[in-house]
Design a protein around this nucleic acid. Structure first.
Lengths: 346, 346
DNA sequence: TATTTTTACGCAAACGTTCCCGATAACGAT
DNA sequence: ATCGTTATCGGGAACGTTTGCGTAAAAATA
């Protein structure tokens, strides 16, 4: 099934004009008589002519499309971020091409290669949780393909980056727990080499230190699949509850990690916040409907997407090579609800 | 910022061969000596040659990309459906280009026009809640652009469609409420002209009829923005509670409608299921974490996306015009939890 | 009237590929 | 020696556009 496109040539033939004249008339060039312009415009309108974007891309060596690589779309944070991306891209005349790495390094490589073989003008990337080596990005970037990282960034690559203030978000969440008299705060998070994991861990540590609580390695668990695999989370929780001195609170470092933890806690029959208090990084918009209402650190996902896209497009459209790069850090928001406020201790 | 592409011409120049020879060598044509092939292949590998997909698209008049139009990505059902779409498209070598109508008819028209001006080989569409006129789709479809509708379909257009069994899903949900002794069942749903709304309403009515409960128009409320606007939902609920004979149960017809209803009920201080029982169409995967655990009708979103994509690609790749169309109906799943089971009445 | 300027348009190349049609050489067959 | 084959390659058109350059006719100027 193919559909017969109407081209500039068809207009020319119908009107007895050359393609160049038609092209110029369409663009309103001054060297075409107004009479001819009228004729062309009217006819084009009549047969509903649309310029072929592929031909244009070939000429201009531009696609007017940007590629997005994220781990999952079905994730509150990323779907909101993509929303922000799309809102800017759309206004600037760019298409958005999406791919999911499903947290797989292998797949990320294939996708990058696939997307970047010049079918895309730039890349918006949040790396997979498996990714430790960034040469697949580096190669393309060095060849001149604009890339902007958001959320999970590749620190090795010098380009624009847009992230939430993960350190402060984690610090605030942890301090909030401490201020509510919780002393033994566990931390379940994503893969350790992920930039977000590191930043959040540092925030968590800093809050403990500020309040003279010694950091205990045994209270930190990394889930290499970012909460996508239930068992990984349940195992981590089980281990935590087997500790001689059990944790009385839990700070989770990721969207999926948080909700999966909640499910696992329910299954393990743990009462929140009595058995364990919970606060987590997540962008769910139904936290207040949970039982109990879930305290969360919320990232400005939509804005992160927007800012990243603006930076990317500025790179794409820049005439001269960009040499000054910035890392934008957007503030998180703390929503305190019942899951992190002890009824006894309060 | 642009990056200098390596073309078939560069290879030719470097090796003293014509572009045609290089092209043929790359494709392994039999009329090229194995020695030349080796040379070309090696050199291409060395300089990391990638064929320019844009040039190919221009030649083949194919893009190997499919457009998706949905109302919102940040929606459990759609993000899961897109997941399914992407899983198939990826394997078949297609890119996925996404757009959001944000439930706006105007915007849908712009998007369709934008996407379809031959930059896309086919369209996967779930129409916006505002859309009542389908000529923008019809025009393109008649010109030969393959379109497959999923979830919210345009019945007027004869093509493949993939939907959940909305009638049965609604029937089951309603009957479940009835079997749990609820008698006055309200129904809050999306825009009335949406195919899904109609199908679900019919299922709801059928269940009432089966159990000899007379249908009461006053118990049905349409939310034209599909739950995206909080006030619309709260207003509907308030009206329901002002009825002389108040409803004792609520069946919600959509992902966003359901979660927003839950939020509004919480704000209105209604106890579930004592004040009102709730069951709703939603694909949230945290329903069991709600307070109380939420009963849901779940659509096979991922599979719907997959099937729709398979049908679309089969249309795209079909040599002869497709004349036989099917409407695939996939079964929903009922998850009964506490929100729809009365403690008193049970 | 002869010359210059302006107006309005066409030709052809280019973007990167593929592919039809030749072309050239080597080689065996006649 | 001539011819037909076969193997191997190049030329050039085509996909739909844009654009630099050239040029005829018309208009303006001398």
């Amino acid at each position: 099934m193919k559909f017969e496109p109407v081209t500039i040539k068809d207009i020319g033939k119908a009107l007895g004009l050359s393609t160049s004249t038609v092209s110029r008339a369409l663009r309103g060039s001054y060297e075409i008589s107004s009479e001819t312009k009228r004729l062309v415009l009217e006819y084009a309108e009549k047969i509903n002519y649309r310029p072929n974007p592929i031909a244009l891309s070939l000429k201009e060596r531009r696609n007017h499309s940007i590629g997005i690589i994220v781990c999952e779309i079905a994730n509150n944070f990323f779907s909101q971020a993509i929303n922000g991306i799309e809102s800017i891209a759309y206004n600037r005349g760019y298409h958005v091409i999406m791919s999911q790495s499903h947290e797989s390094y292998e797949r990320e490589i294939v996708i990058v290669d696939h997307l970047a073989s010049r079918s895309v003008d730039g890349l918006l990337v949040s790396v997979s949780s498996e990714t430790q080596d960034y040469t697949h990005f580096k190669n393309l970037y060095d060849k001149g393909l604009p890339i902007v990282f958001f959320d999970r960034v590749a620190n090795e690559i010098i380009t624009h980056k847009v992230i939430a203030d993960n350190f402060k978000g984690a610090f605030d969440a942890t301090e909030h727990l401490i201020e509510n008299r919780f002393k033994r705060i566990a931390h379940i998070t994503s893969a350790p080499y992920l930039s977000i994991s590191e930043e959040r861990l540092e925030g968590y540590k800093a809050a403990l230190q500020k309040h003279d609580i010694t950091f205990d390695e045994k209270l930190v668990h990394y889930c290499y699949h970012g909460g996508m695999i239930y068992d990984e989370i349940e195992t981590a929780l089980t281990k935590l509850f087997k500790l001689k001195v059990k944790p009385d609170a839990l700070f989770t470092g990721g969207d999926r990690v948080t909700t999966t933890c909640m499910q696992a806690l329910q299954k393990l029959n743990k009462k929140i916040p009595d058995d364990i208090a919970v606060i987590g990084f997540t962008n769910t918009n139904v936290g207040e409907l949970f039982n109990p209402a879930l305290s969360v650190v919320r990232q400005p996902a939509f804005e992160i997407g927007q800012v990243a896209t603006e930076l990317l497009i500025s790179m794409i459209e820049s005439k001269r090579p960009v040499t000054e790069f910035e890392t934008k850090i957007l503030q998180t928001e703390l929503f305190v609800r019942n899951s992190s406020v002890s009824r006894e201790k309060g």
